[in-house]
Amino acid sequence: MMMNLFSIFDPTSSMMNFSLNWVSTILGILFLPQTFWLIMPRINFIFKKIFFSIHQELKVLMGNNAFKGTTLIFISLFFFIMMNNSLGLFPYIFTSTSHLTMTLTLALPLWLSINLYGWINNMNHMFSHLVPQNTPTILMPFMVLIETISNLIRAITLSVRLTANMIAGHLLLTLLSSTGILMSTSMTFFLILIQILLLLLESAVSIIQAYVFMVLSTLYSSEVN
């Protein structure tokens, strides 16, 4: 009987018949307390450097009309997604960001709150976004329809983009590793080298996808101001 490839994203980790799959989502919190009682100047310096670099970039994207502290929401979102993406690369750890249940839970409330705030407080501004500048009059109805659909599916595209990228890399690693038992010794070493390179690529993808999710969410929020 052929096993479903997507079953690798649903490990049966359990304790006393209690599923522990989604517990890995908050696994990164266990690493936080050590910063309060261990002296790690280098790690703290790197963390603060990344934090302030992202903060300065988001301030530029959001403009001068953003509320103070708004960047903290998106920076927290970035670190949370990056943590879950990175932890999913370890063996026997559930990759929560490879499921639409997780990614849509992050994207949908954020998109909904941004749009509710925009339509309640800046309705004229939101209507003006439906028709780009210098649009011919005959094309205006079509542009309104296209922009409306584009706005409605933003939460879906955010979540699907993150999920698809996480699934693609993990499936590729699984497909290559499943052929290892059929290869000769020399080809096995070559396969291990390819797997290591793919693992490095996936490590970069886990950071890049978290960054893309954060930047797009920031750009969507900047449109309502």
Score class of each variant (00 low, 15 high):
106 L>G: 05
167 I>R: 02
24 S>H: 07
171 L>T: 14
137 T>H: 15
115 N>Y: 01
187 M>S: 06
91 P>F: 00
36 F>R: 14
6 F>N: 07
172 L>W: 11
159 S>A: 00
133 Q>M: 09
110 L>H: 00
108 L>P: 01
221 S>L: 10
146 I>D: 02
47 F>P: 07
70 T>P: 08
123 M>Y: 13
212 V>A: 12
85 N>Q: 01
188 T>S: 12
98 S>H: 00
216 L>V: 08
28 G>F: 04
67 F>A: 09
96 S>Y: 00
145 L>K: 09
209 Q>T: 12
48 K>G: 09
73 I>H: 05
32 L>W: 00
95 T>C: 15
141 P>H: 10
75 I>D: 03
158 L>M: 02
122 N>K: 05
201 L>V: 07
14 S>C: 05
192 I>W: 14
42 R>N: 06
74 F>A: 08
225 N>D: 14
87 L>K: 04
81 I>T: 07
93 I>H: 06
89 L>S: 09
40 M>Y: 11
215 V>Q: 13
185 T>Q: 09
116 L>R: 01
219 L>F: 06
147 E>W: 11
104 L>M: 09
34 Q>K: 08
44 N>M: 10
35 T>K: 11
2 M>N: 13
57 E>R: 03
66 A>P: 14
95 T>D: 13
31 F>S: 15
41 P>I: 02
225 N>I: 12
28 G>C: 13
57 E>V: 04
4 N>D: 14
134 N>E: 15
88 G>C: 05
133 Q>L: 08
20 L>R: 02
124 N>P: 14
25 T>S: 07
